[in-house]
Design a protein around this nucleic acid. Sequence first.
DNA 1: CCGGTTTCCTGAACACGTTCAAGAAATCTC
DNA 2: GAGATTTCTTGAACGTGTTCAGGAAACCGG
Lengths: 244, 244
Amino acid sequence: MIETSSLSLQSTRGRPSTRGRLDTGRTAKGSQTRDRILESALLLFRDQGYEQTTMRAVARDAGVALGNTYYYFESKEHLLLAFYERLHQEHLAAALPLLDRERDLKKRVRGVIAAKIDASEPYHRFSQLLFKTAGDPRSPLNPFSRESAVARRQSIGLFDSVVAGSIKKIPEDLRGELPYLLWLYHMGIVLYWIHDESEERAKTYRLLDTTVDLVIRVVTLSGLPGLGALRRRAVAMIKDLRPA
Amino acid sequence: MIETSSLSLQSTRGRPSTRGRLDTGRTAKGSQTRDRILESALLLFRDQGYEQTTMRAVARDAGVALGNTYYYFESKEHLLLAFYERLHQEHLAAALPLLDRERDLKKRVRGVIAAKIDASEPYHRFSQLLFKTAGDPRSPLNPFSRESAVARRQSIGLFDSVVAGSIKKIPEDLRGELPYLLWLYHMGIVLYWIHDESEERAKTYRLLDTTVDLVIRVVTLSGLPGLGALRRRAVAMIKDLRPA
DNA sequence: CCGGTTTCCTGAACACGTTCAAGAAATCTC
DNA sequence: GAGATTTCTTGAACGTGTTCAGGAAACCGG
């Protein structure tokens, strides 16, 4: 499928997009240590949450000195960022088969978001931190920050594929902004999921099913001749106000 | 105006809705100390941000020992919560005249949200923390937590008045949920505002003007006979999925 | 007033994330 | 392989939010 060929399953670990100073993992030894630290952190995060996990415990479990963790990860939050990057890879792997198979836009959107929720489920307890820090412009986890730019672009890129690979007729002007809008929509669903404590996240899935229907309906309606002016105005607004 | 009579301008300070153990401010002396601490904290927060403000600095400026701040405020975050309660009072004071004067729904919604942004402007730099912690279910600042229930109910209550005091015809079933929906909408605008660094927050105001138009249009359209089924389905979903 | 009780206040101590000077190990150059 | 350079590792130390045992001050019933 051509439209998914731009999506990469390659992990960005090992040669991360670091900023000058922290150009780590250059030797085999260094790379191994980095992985050991990351692995320890992920296990501890999952088992006892982010706040309860101390950097000292991460270092101990990885078998290195405390200070060494700071050679490979700028801060505890960057360790979390590395986790999210891995989570995204898992999400991608889960979503790709569906994108290759299904061509109906509604099912593609629903499937990709459901895959995200499923992939995140083991980490529900501490995924709360995603949004805890997502709102802080200074945090590297903030979806608009420079440091998470790679992850964000990848995440939005997934919705590029969702749109590109569907057979639905979409007005040209809306088509350009739709992936971004779907990404925002998916963030909203995730935010709800974070707070959802219902059995099997039943409420989140009900929300998803109902709203995905509405969303697709709006996309369809926006193509009607009588609604062209309204649609153009909305698209213009999004282009204007969408963060750079 | 009857519909605003339930809104209170009384500050909740002095006799806060604390939980048993921390039933503070019972003597005149205690209450004074609490106010001194809060005042110091607000000044420091505003001038140098939340993270840069240390509890030791707060205590020093208030002229008390470090430990004493923890007698009146459970944590640094609770100090921030007290700040948001005060901010809400200022917002309320700014919004009330408009609600007494104006009866057009669109103008009421726009006015109340604009008032919120204006009231928050002096604290833009560290308001980022609102959403930083808003996503964390364990944080007292989380809009769905027990501790912020009072503030939240007040905040939604404001939109109760917005709806109740307008002359717009609104379908009965939607009318019940509309205040909550408008509150959610207003949270979205605030989230955008937090990240908005444009001159005079021009982008936020453009977003507000455009979306308020869309929102009201949807409310109007939802009353059309042909769209009753869709509206009922949407309202049912909201009732089902709205957090308790 | 006095003793008892509650409320208020103190500062040392703790665990945490983070920094840093110093040294060990790997790699490179010749 | 020796020396020079880079990469990796260490653990003590700093400043932070928070806790806590203990003491001071206010209040209350007699």
